[in-house]
């Protein structure tokens, strides 16, 4: 039963996708497809209850939809407007902008504090302390960049962008621990060993993300 449902889902989904093939993506199109699909599916299930087989039910439900050309034209219009209009006004874009600014400022703060401590003549292991701000700033910047929708690319999903941010953070953190522990102990091997742990974790995560990525390029 589950299997059949799965097939029907697929069938309805691809039929609806086909109806609106080649039309620029928009939130409204996405919602309309969602709405059409579920209603179509319920209609098919009703027809099947009335004694039709799945093939007949599907055909009957689809052919009784009526003339969709007006809706399709509507969606095409919206899709075109969407790509033409600036994309920076959405809420996520604003969050992303705020993130970029915050991340950069936090990073800069770390950098400047480090410079200050260095010229104060403090020992090197103390100088590297504020670099933790660069780690945090870098992770925030990475996350904000990826959740930003541009003219050419869609924004990444939040979870994915967060994982990217985490991997960037881990790699930066590995450098941070490497220098701090290296300078503190004066032994390079200690630096490398503490570097290794976080770097490998971060780099592994990054590779995993890179290899499972989907294309976020926008159709033109």
């Amino acid at each position: 039963m589950k299997r059949i449902n799965q097939d029907l889902n697929q069938k309805v989904r691809s039929y609806v996708d086909n109806l609106f093939a080649g039309i620029g993506e928009s939130q409204q199109l996405y919602e309309l497809k969602e709405e059409l699909s579920i209603n179509l599916k319920e209609k098919i299930i009703d027809y099947k209850k009335a004694g039709m087989n799945e093939e007949e039910a599907f055909k009957e439900a689809v052919s009784s939809l009526g003339d969709l050309s007006g809706l399709i034209e509507d969606m095409r219009q919206i899709g075109q407007d969407q790509t033409r209009k600036s994309v920076y006004s959405s809420m996520t874009a604003r969050v992303s902008t705020a993130g970029l600014i915050t991340g950069t400022l936090v990073g800069l703060f770390g950098l400047l504090t480090m410079a200050m401590l260095y010229f104060m003549g403090l020992p090197l292991e103390a100088v590297t302390g504020p670099a933790i701000f660069i780690v945090v700033g870098g992770a925030i910047v990475a996350y904000s960049l990826l959740t930003r929708e541009t003219n050419k690319k869609y924004a990444m999903t939040k979870v994915r962008a967060m994982l990217y941010g985490l991997s960037v953070g881990l790699i930066l953190f590995s450098l941070f621990t490497a220098f701090t522990s290296g300078f503190a102990t004066g032994e390079i091997f200690i630096g490398i060993s503490s570097f290794m742990v976080f770097f490998l974790a971060g780099f592994g995560l990054l590779l995993g993300l890179l290899f499972t990525g989907t294309d976020r390029k926008k159709e033109r």
């Binding site: 209609k43 009784s64 007006g70 509507d74």
Partner: peptide
């Protein structure tokens, strides 16, 4: 959507079907 579609058919005493395409356009 689909429930409204069915309700309209029932209200008309099975004499009138408002096509889904017309419905969605009207909703919008």
């Amino acid at each position: 959507g689909y429930q409204i579609y069915k309700t309209i058919i029932a209200l008309s005493g099975n004499q009138y079907e408002l096509k889904e395409a017309t419905l969605y356009t009207a909703f919008r």
